[in-house]
Amino acid sequence: MYRLVLLLWALAAVAQSPKYGVGRTPTPDEIHQWSFSARPDGKGLPAGSGSVAPGKEIFTNRCSKCHGSAGQGGDAAPLVGGRGTLNTAKPLKTVESYWPYATTVFDYVKRAMPFNQPGTLTDDQVYAVTAYVLFLGRIVPENAVLDARSLPKIRMPNRDGFVPDPRPDVR
């Protein structure tokens, strides 16, 4: 019996060990620096915080040229408005009307905005801009302070608006 257990253990170890041994092990620090991704449950959100008033200032300086002073759109699509339009002939998809998770706003701004200078906002600035956009969308109050704990708790208006892929739907 002991031998059998040992044999099974050895087989399992062989099955799970790398076959080619190519590639190296990264340090935990390397992984941490390399792997930003903020998820709906808050995993991956960094330390720091931001509120609506500084968010407005950053937005005015860095975002409003394309998104409009109040997020109403310009060269880029509107960020706010459109609530209640998704089932009409002219749906307006915005952060306010369409996006299911507030964490996605943080993730995308930190990752990709401003368009011509992505990666230049600090985490505090990203929290602040997120707060301002959500305030413009009437999702958080003017005194909101966002951080890794409060951001995932925000319930977006279209949180339940998404359904799995039913295709093939034409038969």
Binding site: L86, N87, P91, K93, V95, Y98, W99, P100, Y101, T104, Y108, G161, F162, V163, P164, D165, P166, R167
Partner: peptide, 14 residues
């Protein structure tokens, strides 16, 4: 989420 999702006439999105 915001892109590459398919909005249906009833307002839900795939």
């Amino acid at each position: 989420t915001s892109k590459y999702t398919d909005l249906m006439p009833d307002g839900t999105a795939r």
